[in-house]
Design a binder for these strands. Structure first.
Lengths: 105, 105
DNA sequence: GCCATCTGCATCCGGATGGTTGCACAATCC
DNA sequence: GGATTGTGCAACCATCCGGATGCAGATGGC
């Protein structure tokens, strides 16, 4: 679960490279080195990004022999979407109410 | 509609102050000056944030007399949530498939 | 045991970013 | 018409951030 606070999750998702990493991980678990081979960035850069993604619970490390692979935690994405949807709905209601009031004038 | 590219929207949502502004706008339309009065930041800072929010279609300016009020576009929030949910679902399927393969070994 | 490979840590760098201050300009209300 | 209030623009500042380099340490294959 680790329901991370919402804002940092969005901050993590607000970077193109991070999405590329997530997309690459969609093909299956991969280590930082492996990711560095198929993406146009250094391993160290990838490591930092993975740390950010792990911090907000979007990704999870798995030790395999001497390497550390990472896998996407899809549920965290869904959870974030759900929470954002709730917020959106709340605003919809509020705005609808305001509009109603305005029209009643 | 203005289906802004997803990543910049997340980047915009990845800032605490911006959420405070959105929350304040939830009470109803407000100008940059008005927001500056009830938030612990300068009007100019707020103006910049509003520009970012407007850029990604989360907020919309409305001219009222000599002031420019801003209102939240709730549909953009819902839309973003929907798109994120689709991505999450895709990952869920993919991960389920991978798990299936692993178990079949 | 040795070499190849993967990870970790520290440092450095340029650009973006959140924020401020200061000033000029526009419009509105009385 | 004048003072008040709202906006716009520019410069400046500190910090964060994405990224690169370099080097040291760990670990596994053969």
């Amino acid at each position: 679960m680790t329901t991370a606070t919402l804002v940092p999750v969005f901050a993590a998702l607000g970077d193109e490279t991070r999405w590329n990493i997530l997309a690459a991980l969609g093909e299956g678990e991969a280590s930082a080195s492996a990711l560095a081979r198929r993406l146009p960035v250094t391993r160290q850069a990838i490591t930092k990004h993975l740390a950010v993604l792990q911090e907000v619970g979007l990704v999870e490390p798995v030790r395999v022999g001497r390497e550390i692979r990472f896998r996407v935690i899809a549920s965290q994405l869904s959870e974030t979407a759900r929470r954002l949807d709730v917020i959106g709905a709340r605003w919809d209601r509020r705005l609808a109410a305001i509009k109603q009031i305005a029209e009643d004038l």
